[in-house]
Nucleic acid binder design. Structure first.
Lengths: 344, 344
DNA sequence: CTGTTAGCGCTTTCAA
DNA sequence: TTGAAAGCGCTAACAG
C-alpha cells in the first residue's frame, strides 16, 4: 500500500516522460503520440492514478459542478413531484456531460448566502424564488451563468418558464364554463408561507409563479362575472397532496354548494379528488396544474407542461450553452369525456 | 466593475497587512488581533471578497461536499418517494453543516467510474447497489468514508439498513394469516432490470434489498406451506406506482382467484390498491413496504421505517462522524381495522 | 510531438 | 501576534 494518492508527476516519472505528456494524455489526447499515451495510461493504471478535480478546478476555474438552489428547505426538492421532474431534467444533462449536480444548502429562508456564493460550481439553477432573494443576487454578482425556473425575470439571469398567467387563465376559464361557485387552493405565495384561509381578493403573492397563476385565475373570474370576494381561498404552506386533501375536505364540509375547486398544482388537485371521492361529491369539478403523469392519468383538467425539458434547458443555460430563447409550450388538458376522475 | 474576483492577497494589500493575517481572519480568527481582524473584514467587505473553495480544497484536501451515488439513472433519485425521504435526511445534515450535497453522475449502469472516483467530495453515500458495483469499490479504494444504505455489507463501507429479511417475513406472514393464493410484485432484482413475469421460484436477485425482502417472503410462504412455484411474480423494471398498478391489473384479470398481493414497496402497493379499487376487488389483501406517509394514511399493511433518519446517519458516517452502529428499528403496520383501503 | 516554466489562491510550516 | 517562503496538483503558454 502506498502512502498517498499518486499525482501526475508520479505517473510521468513511472512512464519516463514529462508531466505535460501525462497531462495531455488525459485532457488533450490528440496532442500526444500513441506510444507515449499508451505508456502514460499504463503507468496511471498501475499506480491507480485519479486526477485531482480540486487542482484542476483551481487551475482552470471550472469545477465540473452545477449548483441548484431552492429557497425552500432542501428536503422540498425531494418531496414535490414537479420539482422532482424538473430536477430529473437537470440530472439528465449532468449525466450526459459527466457533470456533478450540487444542491446548495439553504436554511429554508432568505438568509445568509456565503455557502452559495463561495460554492465552487460553474453555474446556478434556481427553482422559482422571490425577486429579493439575496442568494439570487449574489449568484448573479458572482459572474457565473444563472438560470431561473419560473421567475422572477431579473437582469443577469435567464428565466425559463411557460406563460403561467395565460395557462392559469385558460384552465380557470374552462372550469367556469360549467361552474359558478368555485373555491381556490393555492400553494405558497410567500417564502415562509403560513397556512391561510381567506377570500381570493385578500391574497398577496411575492413568488412569481404563484403571482402569475393567481392573476390568470382572477382574470378568468372577472370574465365570468364572478367577484373575487366571493371565492374562498386556502393558501397552503407547502405544495402537498395531503394538505390539498385536508383543504378540500374543509371546503366541501364548510361550503357544500361549491361546484368547482381550482387548484394551483396537480398535487393539490389529486388530494382534492381524494377528499371529494371519499364524500361522493362527483359533481364538483377539480382542476390542477403541471400535468404530472398521475394527474394526466386521473383524468382531471390541468395544464400540461414539460418540466423535464425545462430542467434540461436551465442546466444548459447554467453550463454556459447558447440556448435559443424560444417560448415554452403548454396545453390545456380537458376533463376526460366520461367525467369520472380516479386517483392512482 | 473590476476585472476579476478579489483574492486574499488583494484583501491583505487593501488592509495594509500580510496575506496570512487575512487567511487567519477567516480560518482561525483567534490567532489575529481584534484590530487587524476588523481591518481585514472591512477590506474584504469593500472588495466583495469570497474565498475560493477550489484553492482551499487543493490545500486542505477537504471540499465541503458530500457525494451521493445512485446506481440507477440519476433521475431515479427524484422519482422514488423512498429515495426522496432518504435524501431529505441527508439534505438535513448537509444544511445543518453548510455542506453541499453533490449527486454524482452515473450513466445508469455499472459502467465507467472516473467521474465518481475523481469527484472532489469528502465522503460518499451509496443508495443500495450490487456488491460488484465498480463505483462502490473505487469509492472505498479512494480512502474516503463510505456509507451504504440497504447494502451490500462490504469491507471498507458502513451499511445502514433495517433487517429487510425479518421485516419482509413479518409482513408476508401477517398477510398469509388470511390468504392462501398470494401473488407478488417486486421492484428490480438486477441493476438493469427488464420487466419479468414468472413464478417466485424463478426470481434471482443481485440487489441486496430485493434479495433480503424476497428471502423473507419465501420464508413466510414456506412456513405457511405454500409452494413458491405456485406464486406468480411480476418483477418491475422500476419502483413505480404506475407500473404497480398495471401489474396488479394484469394479475387481477389473469388470476381472479388470488386473495392477496404482496409487494416490495408502498409505491407498488398503492398502484395495486388503485387497480383493485377500480375493479371493486376489495377482498384482495395488499401489502406494501417502507411506510411512506401516503401508505400509512391509506391503511394498507406495511413495514414502517424511518428513512430520513437513515439518510441522516449515512450522511454523518460519510462526513467522518463516529456513529454508534445500533440496529435500525422497524415495525409492522397492520391493515386498518375497517378493512377498507383508500388512495389519497 | 515533447518539455520547461510559471502560477491558479490558499494554508502549513517556521521564523521574527 | 505577524510575516516570508513553500507548495498542494494541475495546466496555459510558450519554446524546443
Amino acid at each position: 500500500m502506498s502512502g498517498k494518492r499518486p499525482t501526475l508527476r508520479d505517473v510521468a516519472a513511472r512512464a519516463g516522460l514529462s508531466v505535460m505528456v501525462a497531462s495531455y494524455t488525459f485532457s488533450r489526447p490528440d496532442r500526444v503520440s500513441e506510444a507515449s499515451r499508451a505508456r502514460i495510461l499504463a503507468a496511471a493504471d498501475e499506480l491507480g492514478y485519479q486526477p485531482s478535480q480540486a487542482a484542476r478546478a483551481l487551475r482552470t476555474g471550472r469545477t465540473g459542478l452545477l449548483g441548484v438552489v431552492f429557497s425552500e428547505h432542501l428536503g422540498y426538492a425531494f418531496r414535490d413531484p414537479s420539482a422532482a421532474r424538473f430536477l430529473a431534467g437537470i440530472a439528465d444533462v449532468c449525466a450526459d456531460r459527466g457533470i456533478g449536480l450540487t444542491l446548495l444548502p439553504t436554511g429554508g429562508r432568505l438568509g445568509p448566502t456565503d455557502a452559495i456564493t463561495s460554492a465552487s460550481v460553474d453555474g446556478f439553477v434556481f427553482w422559482t424564488t422571490a425577486a429579493n432573494d439575496p442568494a439570487l443576487r449574489e449568484a448573479i454578482a458572482s459572474g457565473r451563468p444563472v438560470a431561473i425556473h419560473g421567475g422572477p425575470r431579473i437582469a443577469g439571469a435567464t428565466c425559463v418558464s411557460i406563460d403561467d398567467h395565460e395557462a392559469a387563465r385558460a384552465v380557470a376559464r374552462e372550469t367556469l364554463r360549467s361552474a359558478r361557485r368555485p373555491a381556490l387552493i393555492s400553494f405558497p405565495a410567500q417564502v415562509d408561507q403560513l397556512p391561510v384561509v381567506t377570500t381570493l381578493d385578500n391574497v398577496r403573492s411575492e413568488l412569481p409563479v404563484t403571482t402569475e397563476r393567481l392573476r390568470g385565475v382572477r382574470d378568468a373570474l372577472a370574465e365570468a362575472g364572478i367577484d373575487q370576494r366571493s371565492v374562498g381561498c386556502h393558501v397552503l404552506p407547502e405544495n402537498s397532496r395531503l394538505l390539498g386533501r385536508e383543504a378540500a375536505a374543509r371546503i366541501a364540509d364548510d361550503t357544500p354548494d361549491i361546484d368547482a375547486i381550482i387548484t394551483l398544482s396537480d398535487e393539490i388537485a389529486l388530494g382534492a379528488v381524494a377528499a371529494l371521492n371519499a364524500r361522493n361529491l362527483t359533481r364538483v369539478r377539480i382542476t390542477g396544474f403541471d400535468g404530472t403523469p398521475e394527474a394526466l392519468q386521473s383524468g382531471i383538467t390541468t395544464i400540461a407542461q414539460d418540466l423535464e425539458m425545462q430542467g434540461r434547458r436551465c442546466a444548459e443555460i447554467a453550463l454556459g450553452d447558447r440556448v435559443t430563447d424560444s417560448p415554452i409550450p403548454w396545453r390545456l388538458v380537458r376533463l376526460s369525456s366520461t367525467g369520472s376522475v380516479s386517483v392512482s
